[in-house]
């Protein structure tokens, strides 16, 4: 019904003009109003569109420091190959180092943030980021860290550590950051 009435309005607006003659003048108020509405459609006429000024959105969470705290000179970051989520020896060494540290702090919560490089589709990367974070979680759990302490979050390709569009930047972005919010 709604569509029908809109079509009717539009045809009223689009007067068919006879060829080679002056088009008939249509200045009825109803048509004028219809043209304006018809031109912008419903729901989003330029005055109906109110930008939500949500400057503060995400500001609270952003206040949390995004920096990783290195313990014992080892960056709490684990890196991966393209489309990979398995931990290599270097990654295992980082995990082992932090297992030792976390064993001394049994009440410290752990957040694992999975990330990807920008290549490929962003939603698939979101899933891949979670897979990476969970791979690190599993490595921690195998070494005796309680699952209940660990929260897993994926940022997909949305939170790159390096902004470039080359392999150097990509290698730095395929990572899991370990964070300890109460540190």
């Amino acid at each position: 019904m709604k569509n029908l009435s809109r079509i009717a309005l539009l045809s009223a607006v689009s007067i068919l003009l006879a060829a080679c003659s002056d088009p008939p003048v249509d200045d009825s108020a109803a048509n004028k109003a219809t043209v304006v509405d018809g031109a912008m459609g419903n729901g989003m006429s330029s005055n109906g569109l109110k930008g939500m000024d949500l400057n503060a959105l995400g500001a609270m969470s952003a206040l949390e420091d995004d920096k990783n705290y290195a313990v014992g000179g080892v960056q709490p970051t684990i890196y991966f190959g393209f489309d990979q989520f398995s931990l290599d020896d270097k990654a295992q060494a980082v995990v082992s180092h932090y297992v030792r540290y976390l064993s001394t702090k049994p009440n410290l919560p752990i957040v694992l943030e999975g990330n990807c490089d920008e290549r490929g589709s962003s939603e698939y990367n979101m899933a891949l980021g979670e897979r990476r974070a969970k791979a690190v979680r599993d490595a921690l759990v195998v070494s005796g860290i309680a699952t209940s302490r660990i929260k897993v979050v994926s940022f997909g390709e949305e939170k790159p550590a390096a902004e470039g569009h080359d392999e150097t930047a990509w290698a730095l972005n395929r990572r899991v950051d370990m964070k300890f919010p109460q540190q």
Binding site: S14, I15, L17, D26, D27, K32, V35, V36, A39
Partner: peptide, 21 residues
Amino acid sequence: ELVARRWNGVSGQLLRAAAHQ
């Protein structure tokens, strides 16, 4: 002649929308 149409009472702000139509 395939199309002959008139857009009436179009404000400046809506001219681009009319052109897209």
